[in-house]
Design a binder for these strands. Sequence first.
DNA 1: GTGATGCAAAAGTCTGACTTTTTGAGTACG
DNA 2: CGTACTCAAAAAGTCAGACTTTTGCATCAC
Lengths: 255, 255
Amino acid sequence: MQKSDFLSTRVPSYADVMTAQARGLHARVLDSLGPAITAGEYPPGSVLRTDELAQRFEVSRSVMREVVRVLESMHLVASRRRVGVTVRPTEEWNVYDPQVIRWRLAGADRPRQLRSLTVLRSAIEPVAAGLAARNATAEQCAALTECALGMVATSRGRRLEEYLVHDVAFHRVVLDASGNEMFARLGDVVAEILAGRTHHDVMFEDPDPAAVTLHVRVAEAVREGDADRAEALTREIAEGALKELDILAPPPATR
Amino acid sequence: MQKSDFLSTRVPSYADVMTAQARGLHARVLDSLGPAITAGEYPPGSVLRTDELAQRFEVSRSVMREVVRVLESMHLVASRRRVGVTVRPTEEWNVYDPQVIRWRLAGADRPRQLRSLTVLRSAIEPVAAGLAARNATAEQCAALTECALGMVATSRGRRLEEYLVHDVAFHRVVLDASGNEMFARLGDVVAEILAGRTHHDVMFEDPDPAAVTLHVRVAEAVREGDADRAEALTREIAEGALKELDILAPPPATR
DNA sequence: GTGATGCAAAAGTCTGACTTTTTGAGTACG
DNA sequence: CGTACTCAAAAAGTCAGACTTTTGCATCAC
């Protein structure tokens, strides 16, 4: 009956939430089976049976059915009578589902996945920045400038974690300010990519000063409403990200 | 069968599959409740109760629970004990889920939705075309040329339906040939947009000859491996699509 | 070989009982 | 007067079992 009145007011981090054991049986099974499928542990064409899965995970059939339904809605599997639950080919998966993205980024082909997403980014963000220059509110311009300044301030002295926070915030604001909901919803993906770069792909050195400058100039361009310049500058940032990726993990040999 | 095999023997599209009536109780309820939510019939913050829904739709609680689980995985609702199933704010929806896209396109704010998606297209497709110029196989080049020729052949004489088929196929091939799975998966979205233009937004006249020519030239550029030209030409096509949209449904007044 | 027939496997559905979490009202205590 | 504690009810969550429906496959008749 103790009260945890010390150290009690910490805000639970994302990892805490996702790692928590308390999310219900259904979510736990999903988080076990989902990654297994996306990792190719059950290759496309594999057939699973609901009852068998229920036994394996030691849950009732109702729970397992709900899990299968969700996997089905992600197009990871297809359920057919008398056949069972079939793993669908990769090309049919809902690769834009944030959950699927997370599972795949956590799995073995993380590099491939990271490349796909970075290319996607390089297509989206310049256009988003152009739109932001036209549509950003005063508050968004201010936020953008603040982020850029934060990046400058933390760009030296191995303060990578602090830098990351500002970097993520910057790109989120741009995507939001574009006024396009499809763009805005990619904020999480970008956050995931940037975090991955800092944490997994081992950034030994401080961030590229040229990149930092570019961010500052994008903020300027947006503030001034110069769409073309904002787009061009963001395109440069994207080019940089692609180049960086080529160095870390060269692309598959071109056909 | 007449004409090109690769057009006639195409795999059944998503829409085909999902329109079928025989999909089981669960899917039918989902297709009733999902659109209702995305249409704003239950505004964000509304609280539903599983049992009540089960009664309303005349299905068992198990079926309704599975429906709720799927809606939850789309981030349309959140389910909490003792409180019920809450409709989440629009900004949190998984707007890239093909099912959600279809529901929203079928609903009231179709124009808004169509604009978001067209802007997305205008960002993606030029980049995809550039990549396609680098990566397309001989078969894909051939398919692309065939599509372009088909577009030319059906561009006059009010053969809009036939034209649409070739147009959709063209863009699908480009997205596929880009070699990026994130791009490839947008084929359905593009198909939806193009079909919408032909069917809903009333194309009175034959397609713009300039657009047709641009498609032919994109096919050329890809075949010749000229990435920059393929990208620039596709950007022109996208510009055209955006302009067309501005005429049909002017954008909200810029702030 | 071809087509009809029937069996069985697996998903789909329904029902009722039970558990767990959470909220909000009531209550005691300072 | 307000704070903190208790408690009961509400709703989702879980489980088990029985039944239905579809459908692949093997068998059999022609």
